[in-house]
Nucleic acid binder design. Structure first.
Lengths: 161, 161
DNA sequence: GGTTACCTACTCGGATAACGGATGTCCGAGTTCGCAAGG
DNA sequence: CCTTGCGAACTCGGACATCCGTTATCCGAGTAGGTAACC
C-alpha cells in the first residue's frame, strides 16, 4: 500500500505554483529543476493534475502550467485523487460470495461488516485530507518560513537561471 | 495506492478462526477452501500473520493455524500492518532537501508542512482501524447473521468435507 | 497387555517463477512569438 | 513607419521501454500420530 512518489512532487509543485504571479505559466523544466526532479516524469504527473482540473496547461513559448483555481479551492484530497486515482485502497473482492451461503445478488462491498469497517477508516482519512486546502498549507509555510514565497518566485520566474 | 488483496483474505480468515473451538488448529487447505482461495498463496499471508503474533502455527498432522490471542486483542490495524507492513502510505522523500535553502541536517518528514498534513490524515486512518477489534466485527456479524458461526465451525471442523 | 521404536502422512516455511503496474524516456502535434519583407 | 506573412523555437501530450513489487507456485524440513513388533 505504497503511494506513488508523484504525490509528493505534485503537492510541492502546486504549492510553488501558488506563489507565482497569477496568469504566468511555468514550464515543466523549470518546475523540475526546482527540486532536481526528472522533468519528463514530472510532466506526466502534471498532466494528471491538468486532467483533474487542478492545473491548466498552455503549449508553445511562454507556456507551461498554472493553478486552474484559487488555492482555497484545492485540497490535499484533490491532488491525491488526481495522481492515485479515485478507487479505494482497500479492495473488497467480495469473497463472501464464494463462501457458504454467499449470494450473487448481494453487494458485499456494502453488506460485509469487514468492508464497512475498512471503509469507515478510509473515510476518516479522506475527510482529513479534504479538510486541508493548499491555502492552509501555504499560510503555515509562510508563517514558519517567510523567505519561501520569494525563493519560489525568483526561481520560477521567466528569466531565472 | 492499492492495498494487497491478502488483507481481505486475512481479515475474513481471522474472523473465521475466531469461531473455531479454541485450541483447535485449522490447516491452510481448509481455510482456503472456505472461500475458494489459492491455498499456497493464502498460506503466505497467514505466515505473515503468524510472524506478527496474531496467529500461532503448528506443523504436522492436526496442525494448522489458530488465533494467538483473544479477538478483543486483535484490531483491524494489527492485521493490516501484518500484511502491508508498518511503513506509511505517503512516502516523503524529502525533496525539500534538494530545493533552494534545503538543509541536510533537517528531517523534513517532521518539518515539512505537507508531510505533516499527510501524516495527520494517515493517523486518523490508523486510529479508526485501531478502534475496531476482531471481537467488535464478530459481534456485529453474529447479530446480523446468526448462522455464520455455525457455518464456519462446521466447514472448518476437523472432519469437514 | 503395555511399551517402544519406527514409519508414514501431514503441515508449515521459505525459496523460486510470472505477471502487472509504477517508473522512466522519447518524439510528434500544436502554438506563440519574433523577424523580415513589403506596402 | 506600419502591417503581414513566414519560420523557428518552445511546450505539452501521449506512445513506447524498463524496473520493482505483488501475485502465484512449488518442494523441502520438521513433527505428530499411528502401527507393529517386542518384552
Amino acid at each position: 500500500m505504497r503511494m506513488s512518489e508523484g504525490v509528493e512532487w505534485a503537492l510541492h509543485t502546486c504549492l510553488n505554483l501558488s506563489w507565482v504571479e497569477s496568469g504566468e505559466a511555468v514550464p515543466t523544466a523549470r518546475l523540475a529543476e526546482f527540486y532536481g526532479l526528472p522533468a519528463a516524469y514530472l510532466n506526466k504527473q502534471l498532466q494528471a493534475l491538468a486532467r483533474a482540473g487542478i492545473l491548466s496547461s498552455t503549449t508553445g513559448p511562454r507556456g507551461g502550467f498554472r493553478l486552474a483555481r484559487s488555492p482555497e479551492k484545492v485540497t490535499l484530497l484533490d491532488v491525491v485523487t488526481a495522481i492515485e486515482g479515485a478507487e479505494e485502497a482497500f479492495r473488497c473482492d467480495q469473497i463472501l460470495r464464494h463462501g457458504p451461503g454467499g449470494r450473487q445478488d448481494v453487494d458485499y462491498r456494502q453488506a460485509c461488516v469487514i468492508s464497512q469497517g475498512m471503509r469507515k477508516a478510509e473515510l476518516a482519512w479522506r475527510t482529513e485530507l479534504a479538510a486541508q486546502s493548499l491555502a492552509d498549507i501555504r499560510a503555515t509555510v509562510e508563517r514558519r518560513q517567510p523567505s519561501a514565497p520569494g525563493q519560489a518566485r525568483s526561481r520560477l520566474a521567466a528569466g531565472a537561471a
